[in-house]
Computed example of a mutant assay.
Amino acid sequence: MLESSSVLLFIVFVLIFVLLLFTVLIRKNAAAVALIWHEIIREKITNFIMNQSKEQRILDFVLQNAVRGDPCSVVDTIDKYCSQKEWAMNVGNEKGIILDKTVEEVNPSVALELGTYCGYSAVRIAQLLKPGARLLTVEFNPKFAAIAKQMIEFAGVHDKVKILEGPSEEIIPQLKKKYEVDTLDFVFLDHWKDRYTPDTILIQECNLLRKGSVLLADNVIVPGAPEFLNYIRNNPRFQCTNYPSHLEYMKVKDAMEKAVFLG
Score class of each variant (00 low, 15 high):
S168N: 05
V91G: 01
C72R: 09
L63S: 12
C82A: 07
N90C: 03
A30R: 11
L229N: 09
L59K: 01
F154M: 03
S73D: 07
R124Q: 04
T200Q: 06
S213I: 08
Y196W: 11
S168C: 11
N235P: 11
E94W: 01
H38L: 12
T46R: 13
S121I: 00
N65C: 07
N141Q: 10
A133D: 06
V220L: 15
L129H: 03
D70A: 02
H246N: 07
E205G: 12
E113V: 04
I172F: 06
L25M: 12
F22I: 15
V67R: 15
D218W: 02
V103P: 02
G212I: 11
L164P: 01
I45M: 10
M50H: 14
L208I: 14
Q204E: 12
E248T: 10
D182L: 11
R68Y: 13
R68T: 09
L209H: 04
V161K: 01
K80H: 11
K101V: 11
P223W: 02
F61W: 09
P167D: 14
L9G: 08
Q127M: 15
N51M: 12
A145T: 02
N93L: 07
F22T: 06
D199A: 07
F144D: 08
N90P: 02
L25Q: 14
D70T: 02
Q52M: 13
A225L: 05
T46E: 09
C118L: 05
I36L: 12
E180K: 15
L262N: 13
K143A: 09
R68L: 14
I36T: 08
I163F: 00
Q150S: 04
P226W: 10
R42G: 14
P71V: 02
T137P: 03
V62W: 00
R210C: 10
C82R: 00
Y196S: 02
Q52C: 12
L99W: 05
I171S: 04
E43I: 15
N51F: 15
V75P: 00
W87R: 00
F61R: 01
S121W: 00
A255H: 05
W37V: 06
T183M: 11
E248L: 03
I221A: 08
Y81R: 01
T241F: 12
R27V: 09
L20E: 15
P244Q: 11
R68H: 12
S121N: 00
P108Y: 10
N51I: 10
G224R: 12
L8F: 14
P244K: 08
K178L: 11
E170V: 11
E153R: 03
F17E: 13
P223H: 04
Y249E: 02
T102H: 07
K211M: 13
N242I: 15
L184E: 08
F188V: 08
N29E: 11
R195M: 06
